[in-house]
Write a protein that binds this DNA or RNA. Structure first.
Lengths: 254, 254
DNA sequence: ATGATAATGTTAAAAACGAACATAATTATG
DNA sequence: CATAATTATGTTCGTTTTTAACATTATCAT
């Protein structure tokens, strides 16, 4: 886990300013603060480590709570992108598709070509944001906003979902194991995932290889509960065998 | 209006890659494309003009549809921020509040102190994103995503809203005039605004001074239909008089 | 074909960056 | 309280990246 970075007064002031202006140049900061350019540069470096700011040539821009961006700079991006592309390739024109929250499902949205004739239903803010600019018809479920994942859950989400049917659902997961099936650490998210599976013709779980073998709080489906797993690396023998037996298609993204 | 920037095949490919990876270095691009560093740099410059990319030292990062950033660099930000603060000050702890889409209502969300004990209901993606990091309970209506404003509308939004009641609603508007009342250019958004007024104890319209006198397609309420207008400058005499007569409180942000 | 326009390449100077070390300020410790 | 250790800031300088200016090549319209 990344440790919290503590900011001094000047750095906090800088961050305030950058968040207000959206952008700042080092030259401007030098007039505002009686310190060397080098110190300002070090401050910005620190703010960048904290994830609040991104340095540009000669300055910095605010990224703040931009989840999307943070994810991109996060771990395993390349792998997730590959998984996303592979999963997106499953979608046929005209289909209605459910995408839930998570960094990997976001990559699916990102891989959809602009203007594609599919209808996407999602409970994830970042997925919706991504699709908003792509001329792809998008419907959000509504619901209570979860801070941790920026997804919508709870009774409103359930009610909306219950009235819909999808050709295909793509779900993220925190753990995949033979005994515990697919699991998630949040009960309410798990509820949505279960419902999505029920309302969908075919369900694919997207999961990078680090998820194999992990079990967390709530199991939202058994292995046999979904038709397909899209991942980046083949899992160990036991899991692979279990998938084979239970008729779960394993898609390894190349 | 900013004119559309046309990209050639290579630039489109670059953008695809940057949007997928989130970030790219010029050195990498040079291996991918058989052109000079200078040409790549010019390509990135063009992508930056188009607003899709931000150049960093030695590369570029994807910004894509980052609404937040665009708004900040947009017009009248300072005025809208003032309006937002003034409007946010109306909210009492414990209340349930509806915020609709728009750059000014976003400023209300931005002005709410983190952790405040209010429940916010919104149909706007950017408002929800803003609140997600602030430990403020947030509910989204769900609905069909409108590209133009990143807000949710249509039957799902209507149905969800119909089952709720607010202490307070804050609505953006495109036009305010004596005869046409409050108007909006999108029929579906107007429908949501009307419903929000109906479900809310008190409604405030937030509008900067440039909206005064303007009339656009759909009127979603008469002047007397709301209790309050929060703005940055007093409107002309006729409108001010009409507000006075119809019991609409005029709040000028300082 | 030919001239105009746009795209790309080349070169050199300017700007920004990062590393290394020096110095000042702050904090910990005997 | 003095002094060592740590941290923050300043300075210098070499490296990298960027930009500007001009040269060349490709593309297009006439």
């Amino acid at each position: 886990m990344r440790q919290t970075i503590v900011l001094n007064a000047r750095q906090q002031q800088m961050l305030d300013r950058i968040s207000q202006e959206g952008e700042v140049r080092i030259a401007d900061l030098r007039e505002l603060f009686p310190v060397t350019e080098m110190t300002i540069r070090r401050d910005l470096e620190k703010l960048e480590e904290a994830g609040s700011v991104r340095r540009t040539f000669g300055g910095a821009i605010f990224v703040g709570q931009d989840v999307a961006l943070k994810e991109r700079t996060g771990l395993l991006t390349a792998e997730k992108a590959r998984i996303g592309r592979q999963a997106a390739a499953l979608i046929r024109p005209g289909e209605s598709v459910f995408l839930d929250g998570g960094t990997t499902t976001l990559q699916i949205a990102r891989s959809l070509p602009a203007g594609m004739s599919v209808t996407v239903v999602t409970n994830a803010l970042n997925v919706a944001s991504e699709l908003a600019g792509k001329r792809i018809p998008t419907i959000m479920t509504g619901g209570t906003l979860l801070e941790s994942t920026h997804s919508l859950v709870g009774p409103i989400a359930v009610q909306t979902l219950a009235g819909m049917a999808f050709d295909r659902a793509f779900l993220g997961t925190t753990g995949v194991s033979v005994e515990h099936g697919f699991s998630n650490s949040n009960l309410y998210e798990a509820e949505i995932k279960q419902l999505a599976i029920r309302q969908s013709g075919e369900t694919a779980v997207v999961a990078d290889h680090t998820k194999f073998g992990a079990k967390v709080l709530v199991s939202f489906a058994e292995l046999s509960g979904v038709q397909r797993i899209v991942t980046d690396e083949a899992p160990e023998e036991a899991l692979r065998q279990a998938c084979l037996e239970k008729g779960v298609q394993l898609d390894i993204a190349d």
